[in-house]
Design a protein around this nucleic acid. Structure first.
Lengths: 120, 120
DNA sequence: ATAACGTACAACCAAATGGTTGCACAAAGA
DNA sequence: TCTTTGTGCAACCATTTGGTTGTACGTTAT
């Protein structure tokens, strides 16, 4: 899934199909590469469930699948959560510790922690 | 950056280095592959700024960079926001429309997407 | 001083990736 | 009917990727 998101062309296709459902050839006309190349990108996105296709006559209409985007985002949010809990653990340890010698403990990595505080 | 996240080994390295800062060889001992392979994975993550390395004697201590994880997550969140605004636009249109003929439009919600020519 | 360890990097290899062209086929239009 | 259009797929090619081994070099330990 991250693999499917790893190409700017595919992220752009995803963006366009979020904006509005459109056919494969319409998408292909937006890029320099051949139709087949775009068709393969669409296939990769489809395999990753990031888009869904719908048949309409001879056209295949493509639209983004917001569920999968949310899933990728949730996964990254979980990494952030891991980081926060690690910080919380360190904070606990520091709180429990009666600060034995404060002159040597100022080199810990908690100093440059950006404390991502963007409430979700 | 998504490319760096596209391999499970690298996501696992990221997870471990979120948990606790550790050396490259310590990381390498966790996987079946050779040290050099892990070292290259670490280099990819470093190039993507998802981790940072710190020299300590002959060791290189690796830790995750939460800023970059947050950035990836924010990018995906923005995709979701695009989707939500698209839905909001549709809702607006439907609200304005005096429901001309409800007998043919009840098939699906996204099937008859109005061609909103907007500039985002 | 010598050995062992941790790291980086180069060279190499197989497989995957991103692109191409060409072909087959169904749907729409002449 | 015959042609055009939209799509999918196969074959092919160059580059990248993920792995290997080997080598070099600084750091630690004996």
């Amino acid at each position: 899934m991250f693999h499917a998101l790893a190409t700017s062309t595919r992220r752009d296709i995803l963006r366009r199909t979020i904006e509005r459902e459109q056919s494969v050839s319409t998408l292909a006309s937006e890029y320099e590469m051949s139709f087949a190349a775009v068709q393969k990108h669409v296939a990769v996105l489809e395999a990753a469930n990031l888009i869904v296709k719908r048949a309409e006559g001879r056209e295949r209409l493509v639209r983004a699948n917001p569920e999968m985007i949310a899933r990728a985002r949730a996964l990254l949010a979980r990494y952030e959560e891991l980081w926060r809990s690690r910080i919380a653990r360190l904070d606990e340890l520091l709180a429990e510790t009666p600060a034995p010698r404060a002159d040597t403990t100022d080199t810990t990595d908690t100093t440059d922690v950006p404390r991502t505080e963007e409430g979700d």
